[in-house]
Design a protein around this nucleic acid. Structure first.
Lengths: 227, 227
DNA sequence: TTCGTCATGTAATGGGTTACATGATTAC
DNA sequence: GTAATCATGTAACCCATTACATGACGAA
């Protein structure tokens, strides 16, 4: 009943939508998908997985093997017996709901970031809703900052002032970014259905109306658990 | 022994250097000084204050009255008996040490922000050290992001890619900001001693070499506990 | 043989929030 | 008289991290 992290839960469901995975792999994928933006440790991940299973959103298969090829039944002795997690139908439904339903803190920095990372799995409607939601939230924040600054400007020293000015500028920049994204979405033609798992990008199928920033380097399947 | 928050501790000491205060007031000042950038709740503040007293960095005076004027001894019945906290000599020394010594996570976002808010109470040397420390930390981060992106670019969809691109851009912007600040510091003439409490800004005494961003509105002594 | 990395997990700890309890004072 | 704000505190969570325990496998 405990151990339900919100964002982690969301991210895990999102990743497992693409394909079943075991914990260790999940964590790696989590940390590359989200980049330096957010990282999770085993101490959170494993208990979270157990909780998700308890909710019926995931099933665990102890014997199976996913991406490695051979070595079928390793029983309890073979290389610490991988536990492969697979999304159930309920889990899928729950993910859809989380994705579109969006609780009250879905607009906060981290929540938004994780959501954004899974935009490829949603419809444009949902994307628009999330982007616009975040934008209006940031605009509120900006308004608060402006008001608070106007109130206390006289009493603050230069450094504090500079800190707040810079903070506001950051938020303004974020709003501009959202505006661009919203524009792109509006201009985009593809209205991807929310059921497109394993989104075959790199093909003709554009995911949305995003500005391309490509430049390819060689693929290199390693992780970044770097301290 | 418990309840020592690091940043909160630092911020509290910094604020109390200017003048003694009671908890309620401290929290307000904390939240206006740091702006929307960071907020603290009583649940953290009060225990922290007790801990700081236990360490000998603060003293508590139960009878006193700070900024209100009259109403001397209200005993235990008068308006819930304010507890005024005052920085001791040891507390002052500890603050100086925290300010210049800078532990390993002093470069992280929040730590840096709080530090920066108290830059007015340090010497330029310390400011430079903190700014440059943060910059090099961010540059490392940037390098990591670049590497990780190069490694996984092929495997990531457009939204994830865009997220990471934007993230990197944010960090780059932060670095540019730091560069400007460092430039300003270098150009600044005032080398304020670390003992200048209640820094009389708004006079000729510039605190550093900061770009001015003034524009004054009327003063309005209210708070922003706004939800 | 020793080191890295695969693989799962737990216990201790950290650092914070929300909600509540309590009650007096001031502003409308 | 009633609502907001002043003022202090505590208890119950929440979410996450670190460090540890355990152990197999592959490469140097």
């Amino acid at each position: 009943m405990s151990r339900r992290s919100g964002i982690l839960e969301f991210a895990v469901l999102g990743l497992l939508r693409e394909s079943p995975m075991h914990g260790y792999e999940l964590r790696k994928r989590l940390n590359t998908s989200l980049g330096v933006f957010r990282a999770f440790s085993y101490g959170t991940l494993y208990p979270c997985l157990k909780a998700l299973v308890a909710h019926g959103w995931l099933t665990e298969e102890t014997g199976g093997d996913t991406a490695h090829g051979a070595a079928p039944a390793a029983s309890l002795a073979g290389r610490r017996a991988k536990i492969v997690y697979r999304l159930t139908a309920e889990g899928k439904a729950h993910f859809e709901e989380l994705l579109s339903h969006s609780g009250p803190d879905a607009w906060e920095d981290e929540h938004f970031g994780v959501r954004f990372a899974f935009f490829g799995q949603t419809s444009r409607d949902v994307r628009m809703r999330v982007l616009e939601g975040r934008r209006s939230r940031l605009e509120e924040r900006l308004e608060k900052m402006r008001a608070s600054l106007a109130r206390s400007r006289e009493r603050l020293d230069d450094y504090t002032l500079e800190l707040q000015r810079h903070g506001m500028e950051s938020v303004e920049r974020e709003v501009r970014w959202l505006n661009e994204l919203i524009e792109s979405e509006r201009a985009g033609r593809d209205q991807r259905a929310p059921d497109a798992a394993a989104p075959d990008r790199n093909e003709s199928g554009e995911t949305g109306g995003l500005p391309r920033h490509r430049g390819g380097s060689r693929p290199d399947p390693s992780d970044d658990t770097a301290t």
